[in-house]
Simulated scan of single mutants.
Amino acid sequence: MARYIGPKAKISRKFGEPIMGPSKALQKKNYGPGMHGRGRKRKQSEYALQLLEKQKVKYTYGILERQFRALFHRAQVREGITGENLLKLCEARLDNTVYRLGIASSRRAARQLVSHKHIIVDGEVVNIPSYSLKPGQLIGVREKSKSLEAVASSLSARNTKRYNWVEWDGQELVGKFISYPERDQIPENFNEQAIVELYSK
């Protein structure tokens, strides 16, 4: 599957959750998209449920299949529970961390900021959204980019929600990736074990 650039509400309705950001469509149309969305739901097979769970994580973080499979392999060879390792590696992506810090209003917007060289890591410009951060690394906004309207509006409307694995200095516009998050700290509703079972077949 190529990177999805279609209607976000359609994907949210597919999973019944606002996985690509807040969506009013879920309140107005609380059934699946398409002409059969209101039809009788058939019982899904175990494989279908596992596949849906994988797609949910991929859509949430904006990851393609090849990247996702590589991440899964890295999660497998690390110590610990494979499913939890997978989510930790997804959370450590640069575009996701920029979003968690509040520099961007969505993961899509964060990806664009990184790609357009507005973000620095440890003082160096990094334009790879999938760049994997290590604990202790500093993430900031490039000096020339601090006046960008998108960055300024996102920081001014910055969510009061704080995440334990990142910290933000509003004066210097610099954040820190403190550590990989624990599973119970990640707010998204994922069944990572289903993904592990899918890839184990």
Rank of each mutant, 00 (worst) to 15 (best):
A2W: 12
G6Y: 08
P7K: 13
P7Y: 13
K10R: 13
I11A: 14
S12Y: 06
S12M: 05
S12G: 12
K14M: 12
G16A: 03
P22F: 10
A25K: 02
L26R: 03
L26P: 03
K28D: 09
Y31M: 02
G32A: 14
P33T: 00
M35D: 10
H36V: 08
H36L: 14
G37L: 00
R38V: 04
G39F: 00
K41C: 06
K41N: 08
Q44T: 09
Y47K: 01
Y47N: 06
L49D: 10
L52A: 13
Q55H: 11
K56F: 00
K58H: 08
Y59W: 09
T60D: 07
T60V: 11
Q67K: 13
A70N: 12
F72Q: 08
F72M: 13
R74C: 11
R74H: 11
I81C: 10
N85G: 03
K88D: 00
L89N: 00
L89Y: 01
C90L: 14
C90T: 01
T97G: 05
Y99I: 06
Y99L: 07
R100D: 00
I103R: 00
Q112W: 10
L113Y: 13
S115D: 10
S115N: 14
H116G: 04
I120E: 13
V121M: 06
G123N: 09
N127F: 13
P135E: 11
R142G: 07
S145I: 10
S147R: 11
L148P: 03
A150I: 15
V151A: 06
S153L: 13
L155I: 15
A157W: 07
R158N: 02
K161I: 15
W165T: 06
W165E: 03
W165S: 01
V166L: 04
W168R: 12
D169F: 01
Q171E: 15
E172N: 12
E172S: 13
V174L: 13
G175R: 01
K176S: 12
I178D: 07
R183A: 14
I186E: 05
N189S: 11
F190C: 05
N191P: 03
Q193I: 09
A194D: 08
L198S: 04
K201V: 13
